[in-house]
Every structure is written in C-alpha cells, then in structure tokens.
Design a binder for these strands. Structure first.
Lengths: 193, 193, 193, 193
DNA sequence: TCCTAAGCGAGACGGTACGTCTTGTCTTCCA
DNA sequence: TGGAAGACAAGACGTACCGTCTCGCTTAGGA
C-alpha cells in the first residue's frame, strides 16, 4: 500500500487548506478571498494547492460537502423520523447560530450558488426519503415527491438565509415552530391530496 | 431644464448597455461576461460604460430592478387581489418560460445573489402588503408578517429555480396549482393562528 | 470685414490658452499637463480648444515660436553684430534666470524635443547669418557654415540646460564669458581654417 | 546561492524585453511604442513585464544604460587617452551609422530626454576624468572642469543629433576632424587659461 | 547506508479582466 | 453662428488574480 503515505500527507494538506478557507470565510465574503489569501493563511505553496484542488471553487465545494456530512450526521441522530417534526430544525438553527460568521459567508455571494448546486441536492434526497416513508403504502401523493422535497428544502434554506441576514430576530426554537406550522399543512396537503 | 439633453442621451446609452447585457445573459453565465463583451456588443466605449455604471454589477442590478418593475406591473394588472390566489403565478411562470435563457442566467451564479439582495426585498414588500390586506382588521397574525412574506417569496423563488433547472417538467398552470396548494394552508395557519 | 471679429476673438482665445499653458508649465512638466488642465485653467470649452489647435503639441509649438520671436527681438536690439561677442549671452542668461520655472519646463521632457525641432532651426538660421557676415568676402570657411551654426546653437542650448539643471551655479555674466571663451576659438578655426 | 535560479531566469526575460524594445525602436518612435507592442514582440505576459520594470520608461532607461556601457567599453579600448584626440569620435560616428535606425529613435522624443538624464551624466563623468588627466599637475583650470565636460559632451551629442537628422551629410571621419577642430581650441583655452 | 520518488515551498511566467485616464470627435444648446 | 458643455469611442495604462510551470529541498521507505 504505497499510497497510504501519500494519502496521509495529502489529507493533512487538505485539512490545512480547508481550515484556512473556513477561517477566511469568517473574515470576508467568498468572492473577496483569493487563492493567495488561502495560501498565505495555510502557509502552503501555490503549486501544492493546485495539486489538491483544480481551483478555489473545488476547495469550497469540498468544504460544503464536509459541512453537509456533519449536518446530516447531526440530524441522523435525532429521533425525528416519523414524528410530527419533519426535521430537527431547532438543532439546526442553534448550530448555525453558533457559527454565524461562517454560515453568513456560506449563504452569500457565489458561495450560495455552490451550496444550491451541491448541498441542496443532498438535502432534497434526504427529505424525499423521509416523505416517502410518511406516504401511506401504495398511495400516490397529490403532489410529486420531488416537488414536495424542493418545497421543504427550499423553505428551510430561504428562511435560514432570511434569519441570518436579519440578525436572528427569533430564537431557534421559535423558528422551528414557525417553520413547521408553515410547512406541515402544505405537506399534508401534498401527500394525501 | 438643462439636464434633459444629458438625460436623453444617457438614457439611450443605458438602454443599449442593458440590451447588450440581456442578450449576453442568454449566451453565457453572468460570471463569464466581461465588461469588454458588453462594450463590443453594445458598440460603446469603455470609458462611456464607466461613466454610467461603476461596475458590471451595477449594470446587472439596474437590469434586475427594471425586470422587477416590469414584473410588478404585470402582476399589478392581474385581478388577484383578495382572491384565493396570492399571486398570478401562472402568468409569472409563463413569462419566465418565454424567457427561459435569460431567467436561467439570472438564477445562477453571482447573479442570483444580486437578485436576492435587490429583488427579493422588493417581492417581500409586495407580498407583505397583500398579506396585511388579508388579515382580519384588528387581529394580530400568529406568525409575524415579515416571516410569512419571506416564506412566500422564498418559496416562489426557490421553486422557480428548481423548475428552470429541471427543464420545466410541469406546465405553468400545474406549477401555479401546486404552489398554491403548498403555500396557502401555511399562510392561513400563520395569519389566523 | 466679417472675419475681423472672428480673428480678434480667436486671438483672445489663443492668448488665454497660451497663458494657461505658460502658467501650468511653471507648476508641472509638460508631459504631466493634460488638455483638460489647460481647459480648466483657461476656462475654455474642449471643442473650442480643438478649434484653435490640432493638439496639445501645437499649442506648445505656438508658445515656443512666440518665445523665440521675443528672444530674437531682444537679441536683435543688442549691438553684438560684428563685435567679438557672437550673441548677447549675458542678456539671454539673465532673462532665463528671471523665468527659471518656465524655462526649466521648456528644457525638459518632450518639450525640449519640440524646442529642438522648432526653436533650434530658428537659432541656427540666425547664427548662420551672423557667421556668414563675419566670413571674409569670397572665402570659403574651413568648416561648412551649417556645421558651425549647429555647433554654436547646440552649445548654447546644452549649456543653458546644464546651467538650469545645476541651479545656476555661475552668474549670467560668467556664463557669457566662459561660453565665448569655449566657442570663439573653434569658430575662428572653422571660419578661417 | 538560492538567488541564482531566479536571477538566471530574470536575466533571460529582461534580455528578451530589451531586444524587443530595440527592435521596435527601429520601426517607430519611442512614444508610439506601447507596452503591449513590447509584450507581443517579446512574447511575454503583461504581469511579467511589470514584475521586471515599473514602466515602459524603466525599460528604456535600462536599455540606454546598457548602450552607454557598451559604448564606454568601445571607447575604453581605443588608445585615445592623452593623445590629441579627446575621444574616438570616428569610431563612435561609425557605430552610430551602422545602427542609424536605433540611434535615430533614441535621439528623438521622450527618449532623448531619458538619454539626457541618464546617459549624459555618465558621459560627463568620463570626460571630466580625461580632462583632469590632461591638466598639468597642480594647476587650476581657467574654466571649471564640470563646465568643460558639459561643453564637450553637449557638443558631441548635439552634433550627433544634427548629423543623424540631416541624413549624415559627412563621413564619420570628417565629423571627427571637424568636431575636434571646433572643440579642442576651446578646451585648451579652458584648461590652461 | 544510500537511493529514489513523492510531497512540498517558492515564485516566475503567460494570460486576461479590471477600472482609470487621456485624447480627439461629435452633437446639442445657448447667447 | 460661434463658443461652452460635455457625451462619446478608442485604446493605453498599471494592477490584480489565475492556473501552469520549473526548480530545489525534504523526507521516507526500499535496496
């Protein structure tokens, strides 16, 4: 296994780069971060960077994917399945609150776009699974599952953005309640006609 | 009125620049459009451009604002006010369908971001007005109007994006129906508790 | 005589432009002076400028020619002709001293170049005339008159530049003496072999 | 010696840039040469250029300095020192004749100015040294050495310009003879009073 | 012990877009 | 009807980033 050595080192470099990006995202918007900024922060050579990522976006995407994985693990542990709550929104909002700066950065500029492309597909899939599980066996939903999933994930994301940009005027718990009250009736409507 | 002369010419130049941008947005994503592209297309000198707009972004924002104005005029004419439909979504989706390329461009990349910053505030205001009108006099909504407005506008936009990116798998009419079925129950819930 | 009015006005405008240029030349080098600077200083419209001069250089040339005329009048009045002094250098250096700033400007940058092209030809002609007058009738000079003239005018100009750029370390009178001592022997040599 | 690598590369790039400038100077006047012209000719990237030189002027100055070095080497080899000839002017005029286009370019426009600033100081120094050597030990010159030196260098340069601009009407050898006949008596006069 | 291959830093380089600046032309209005 | 005002096309300028590249240094196994 001669690649192990390589991998181990590579992982370290990637880790450093990701950390540098996360740190920088707290300071300035994604668009304002140059590759050179990342290199300086990570104390990494230019060619090394390009040996690991084809460009700045790839690094960002990597970061987003890791974030999504962490989040999904978080929500996977919660006992929401089948219950009246579609997702552990309170926990999500709380986690976001603890990392405001980072999430604010992720939710703005070109970064959102990457999130929409990479992260939302992931979200949609999770939600579609959950919804399918709630559908009475053998029944067709009144509104197609992908539409419902997009409705849910879109609302989550859009409200999260709004919440952050308006300086979090409600508590995570309140947001959870309001979101569920807004979304659940529509979902019932869509699932069972 | 000594500015009229100036204004008249300026307007012409701005119009040409906007048209050039719209045309280019149908061909490639916003990020790939350089100022020079716009200049060549518009047959305009570099300094003239910068005399009118500080930035490529400023031109984009101007275009978005004009688009929003046109759309709001469109929806203003519709007899939806007070009826069971919150907004003339069918007409909106149809209009978008007729200008797919342009809207696809607007809904991606940095451009969305500008839209979120500039366009959505506008949308929220319109929707908040409509909702307030529906609120029984003297009653407090169970969910604050700004939250409801963001819920509606966010859902509209997010579904529009999804629809475009998935090659418009349903007709404008179907989208209208589904969106209303998804959103209206939550709104009722939010308005009247 | 309908043109007289025009001419008179034109003269006025030209005068104003020339004065503005002279004033600006005291403040910054010719290259750093933009047409706009001249316009602002002269309080003249852009198109008016171009109605009178094809470009900034033409204005400069006009100024140089007027300067040369003034200088030649000055030297014409002096009783140098035929005497041991070739030219009233003392008076020239004194005049330059009184207008240091202006001449420093004229003697630097692109401006010198214009001077060499326009002014030196003029100088050469004057000097050639003077030299021819000193040539014993019917004799051929050992060195052609144009070469001698260029030698004299070139030395004058080059020493003037040097003098100005070295903060006028000698008095006009000393410069006159030294220059004559340097140049006259060579001239004798050249005229009479 | 970690800089060697850098230096070696830099030198190559500089060399290419200088060659490109020299080539272009034969085709059009200095003022008409844009940085882009140089880049295209040298096949060099824009930023690389600015990494080496702050300016187009800096490149020109570098070229002039190298030219002066080459010329001084040329004259240094000649056995003129102490002889009746002050400088190997015949060789100089011949060399200029062989590179007419280039020198014509250098002797015009903004370029002369740079030459006057950079090159003439160099010349003056060399000439001052030579003159000091000719001064009988312990004697003061009648005219200060710097004035004499400027007289010589100024005359050389001014005559060179005149010669080039008048299409070289005399042979290098004739120019050498005439210049020495014009200048040497003045110098004797100035050195020994 | 030496060797050799990879990861890495440093940073030169070509390329390209940017926003600024100046020029000379043109049009429109005003006195 | 001529001059003032200033919009405009053209295009060079110097700056900033990008992604590619070449160069040595280091650091571990494997011989």
């Amino acid at each position: 296994m001669p690649e192990q050595k390589t991998d181990r080192r590579s992982l370290r470099t990637r880790r450093i780069l990701l950390d540098a990006l996360v740190a920088l995202m707290q300071e300035k918007p994604y668009e304002a971060i140059t590759v050179q900024d990342v290199l300086d922060r990570a104390d990494i050579g230019r060619s090394t960077f390009y040996a690991h990522y084809p460009d700045k976006e790839a690094l960002m995407v990597d970061m987003l994917e890791r974030m999504m994985n962490a989040l999904s693990k978080m929500s996977g542990e919660s006992p929401a399945a089948g219950g009246p709550r579609l997702a552990p929104l309170k926990e999500l909002f709380e986690h976001v609150k603890q990392n405001q700066r980072l999430f604010s950065g992720v939710m703005r500029g070109r970064a959102v776009d990457l999130f929409y492309e990479k992260g939302q597909a992931y979200l949609n899939q999770m939600i579609a699974n959950e919804l399918t599980g709630r559908l009475p066996a053998g029944r067709q939903p009144a509104i197609p599952i992908p539409v419902l999933a997009q409705f849910v994930s879109g609302t989550m994301v859009t409200m999260l953005r709004w919440w952050l940009e308006n300086k979090m005027p409600y508590s995570p718990s309140e947001m959870d309640t309001m979101l569920h009250r807004l979304v659940m009736p529509g979902i019932q409507n869509g699932l069972t006609g």
